[in-house]
């Protein structure tokens, strides 16, 4: 693979991207650097933009997604790959076919990589044991969402520089959030201080044992933060058992301009989307200059290009 240089082969040896927890800080920084050079490169003259030519990437999305699926498609096409998207509702899974059989069929159809979004935690690992091709985790239940965390961290570094000792607060539904988990691992590995905040029913104390600071008081969580990452309250995952109402959430934990004014002057606001305007974030805050939400989305393409390039052209993938 001429597009793959010596350094890539030395540092990046993963065939699949299953989690952030399983990456070293060197590997995380390596992906981010690769994404940076992709983002900054002008035009597509460089060989990397053809590195996946002739490769067939299947986006197997068993849960709804807009940003992630489209960003992966654009990223793959930008590297010269062909992409095919399969959604849960449109696949034979609705006819009772198991994920195992779907994946084996997808491999038999000539997939060179599978990008998987699935509601079951651990499903990318499960798939990686069944098929030989690289598996890219695009979100597995409440477990991890590695590409989202990488683009979040990319954006944070773009705005804040080195993240060592930076205070990052993740506010919202942490219990059911794969984004929170992947960011927690990534940020801790890069030396940041992470505070997890939100209602006590959605932010278990046990997260302290995983290295985070936990608080249920939004003013404490936001006071010193260099950045706050807001998470959506996930109606589809939780029942009434965890929270009274969205209005209550907006009252107690919503980020409005008053709350914003009490934060550090340069603190930035991230959100992985989709936004619930008027719930976790007031519209004017979302549209303010402090929010970097759309930059996150744009960075998501470069980050996913880096992921696809590194995994699919890795030594282990080319042997399979």
């Amino acid at each position: 693979m001429e597009a793959r240089n010596f350094l890539e082969s030395m540092i990046w040896q993963q065939k699949s991207l299953l989690s952030i927890e399983g990456l070293s800080s060197e590997e995380i920084l390596f992906i981010l650097d690769k994404a940076k050079s992709l983002k900054e490169s002008k035009g597509n003259e460089e060989p990397i933009f053809h590195s996946l030519r002739g490769k067939r990437i299947i986006n197997l999305f068993m849960e709804p997604s807009t940003r992630t699926r489209v960003a992966f498609e654009i990223a793959a096409k930008s590297l010269g790959a062909d992409t095919i998207s399969i959604s849960g509702e449109a696949s034979s899974l609705t006819k009772g076919e198991t994920l195992k059989d779907t994946a084996m069929n997808v491999q038999a159809l000539g997939a060179d990589a599978i990008v998987l979004r699935h509601s079951s935690p651990g499903s990318p690992l499960f798939l990686s044991r069944i098929v030989d091709v690289p598996i890219i985790n695009a979100g597995d239940g409440a477990h991890e969402h590695p590409s989202q965390a990488l683009l979040d961290i990319y954006t944070l570094r773009e705005k804040l520089g080195d993240l060592r000792d930076r205070k990052i607060t993740i506010l919202g539904d942490i219990l059911f959030s794969r984004v929170a988990r992947s960011n927690l691992w990534g940020l801790l590995k890069l030396g940041a201080k992470v505070t997890l905040a939100g209602p006590s029913t959605l932010v278990p104390r046990e997260f302290e044992k995983l290295g985070a600071r936990v608080t249920h008081d939004p003013s404490v969580a936001l006071k010193d933060a260099d950045a706050v990452m807001l998470l959506r309250i996930q109606h589809e995952r939780q029942q009434a058992s965890h929270f009274p109402s969205l209005a209550e959430y907006a009252n107690v934990f919503g980020l409005d301009s008053k709350v914003l004014s009490a934060m550090k002057r340069n603190a930035i606001i991230l959100h992985p989307g989709p936004l619930n305007r008027g719930v976790e974030i007031e519209s004017e805050v979302a549209d303010s200059g402090r929010a970097v939400i759309l930059q996150q989305v744009a960075n998501g393409i470069a980050v996913r290009m880096a992921i696809l390039h590194l995994c699919i052209t890795s030594e282990k993938s080319s042997h399979s």
Binding site: P121, D140, A142, H143, R181, L210
Partner: peptide, 10 residues
């Protein structure tokens, strides 16, 4: 229910 199940998203 433990830090492990939290970590695994279970």
């Amino acid at each position: 229910e433990s830090p492990l199940s939290l970590k695994m998203g279970l």
